[in-house]
Design a protein around this nucleic acid. Structure first.
Length: 436
RNA sequence: GACCCGUUCGUCUAUCGGUUAGGACUCCAGAUUUUCAUUCUGGCAAGAAGGGUUCGACUCCCUUACGGGUCGCCA
């Protein structure tokens, strides 16, 4: 019997990292076992559902690379995959439930009568958990059909899992206490329950519950900032799951290979944005120069910067220095345009070096005299200029960096010299000298 | 409040009774880069508390504390 798992989001907002990780674990489990990953949209709450939210879910999953085998846009033998289109199915199952005598009317709504006994479940992550249903105050009979005739989550969720032949339900821990309810419903309906695995929730850095507004919460924010989908998948996989080795950087395919529900942790994890960015940097460095250039180009264009002939060389100069693609434009702006801003604090630092102005003046003259420009030739001139004034070459390098880029941090000085060329370097040093 | 799950460096984690408790992020230091960053090396930093069980406990059990979850005609 092959594995069938599902991701069943409710389209009431943007795709959340917690939801994305639930989807990821389901997807990994399906791929690992050669099973099917089903996307089912639980849009029964018409008042709160929006088309934009549905689209955000599809976009988010697509961006992350989590393709579904059955679901919206894909079809499948259990279509439709929107709960709002499955009323007939629910009516039929509800009739079945009524026939068992386990539901009764209450204020126009229908409640399911729980069996008053301890209910034990075997969770693939949490182990054996028993909830005592003799405590009626804690487990009141649940409404399955509302006064307005619509069905509540518990009922449609269970019916669809049964209908769609779901074998493993992998979901957030917030559903753990719902599971005995679902088990009782399934038993009443004469169905076979799936296996359950409840994964721990993702919290904010301060331990509070992560909401949509918190940094890192919305999946659609990641592409905007310049994360690679593989980085995000890698990072959220590590939040709550461990390969049990010291390795941390994985491709999607490697995650499929390593993933196992037994290695999912039970304690909730906190979201560490710094580490997420570090993971992205690792993935960025693994990209071929051509792929990095391709990935970075939209960010450069969006920043209004030109894309010159030596663009690939410019990208190569910063590939291993950025953590996000969004950091690329500010890092290369001075290489693509002659007009750029100078960082005040950094310029002040150069001014503090009394000899810098004169040395840079000499350097500009030296640059101008170079017949065949190259980074090495420019560095030789720099060394000679410094020594002639009784200074060390190193003392001139930082001022030169600032003269060329306006900032303290950036690519290797040699790369800058190469990329900018003789005329630009000379002109920029002269312009900077005038500023001092 | 009741019920459920959980608790190893600040954070993510390894450890399935015997380890100097390992790795990573962050931070700090040194080295390299004739420059800043990158990189490399090193360092700081942990078993919530108290009881048991055991020759021996981070690991098993109990209690307490703390954190999270659930108790809807939301999903």
């Amino acid at each position: 019997m092959s594995v069938r798992v599902r991701f069943a989001p409710s389209p009431t907002g943007y795709l959340h990292v917690g939801g994305a990780r639930t989807a990821l674990f389901n997807w990994l489990f399906a791929r690992k076992h050669g099973g099917s990953f089903i996307l089912r949209v639980e849009d029964t709450d018409e008042a709160r559902n929006t088309d934009a939210a549905k689209q955000a879910i599809f976009d988010g999953l697509n961006w992350l690379g989590l393709d579904w085998d059955e679901g919206p846009g894909k079809g499948g033998k259990h279509a439709p995959y929107f709960q709002s289109e499955r009323w007939g199915i629910y009516d039929a199952w509800f009739a079945k439930l009524v026939a068992t005598g386990r539901v009764y009317q209450d204020d126009g709504a229908w409640r399911f009568r729980f069996e008053r006994k301890p209910v034990t479940m075997r969770d693939l992550v949490c182990g054996e958990v028993t909830i005592d249903y003799r405590d009626e105050a804690n487990t009141p009979d649940m409404v399955v059909k509302r006064t307005d005739g619509s069905y509540v989550f518990h009922f449609v969720n269970v019916v669809d899992d049964l209908e769609m032949g779901i074998t493993h339900v992998i979901r957030g821990e917030d559903h753990l206490m719902n599971t005995p309810k679902h088990l009782q419903l399934i038993a009443a309906l004469g169905g076979t329950p799936p296996h359950y695995a409840h994964i721990p929730l993702i919290l904010n850095p301060d331990g509070s519950k992560m909401s949509k507004r918190d940094a890192g919460a919305a999946v659609d924010d990641y592409p905007r900032q310049g994360f690679l989908p593989g980085s995000v998948v890698n990072f959220i996989a590590l939040l709550g799951w461990s390969p049990k080795t010291n390795e941390e950087i994985f491709t999607l395919a490697e995650l499929v290979d390593r993933f196992a529900l037994e290695n999912v942790n039970r304690a909730p994890g906190r979201f560490d944005f710094d580490k997420c960015k570090w993971v992205n940097q690792q993935h960025l460095m693994l990209l071929s120069p051509a792929d990095f250039t391709l990935a970075a180009q939209p960010f450069v264009a969006a920043a209004g910067l030109p894309v010159p002939a030596n663009f690939a060389a410019v990208m190569a100069a910063v590939q291993d220095k950025v953590r996000l693609l969004g950091e690329v434009p500010p890092a290369v702006g001075f290489l693509l345009l002659d007009e750029f801003s100078y960082d005040g604090e950094t310029v002040a630092k150069v001014r503090g070096n009394g000899a810098a102005k004169e040395l840079l003046g000499d350097l500009a003259a030296g640059f101008n005299g170079i017949s065949t420009w190259s980074a090495d030739a420019a560095k030789e001139v720099l060394s000679a200029t410094a020594r002639a004034a009784g200074a060390k070459p190193g003392q001139l390098m930082f001022p030169l960096r600032v003269a060329l880029s306006g900032r303290a941090h950036g690519p290797d000085l040699g790369d800058m010299l190469d990329l900018l060329g003789k005329d630009r370097c000379t002109a920029r040093v002269r312009r900077f000298v005038a500023m001092l």
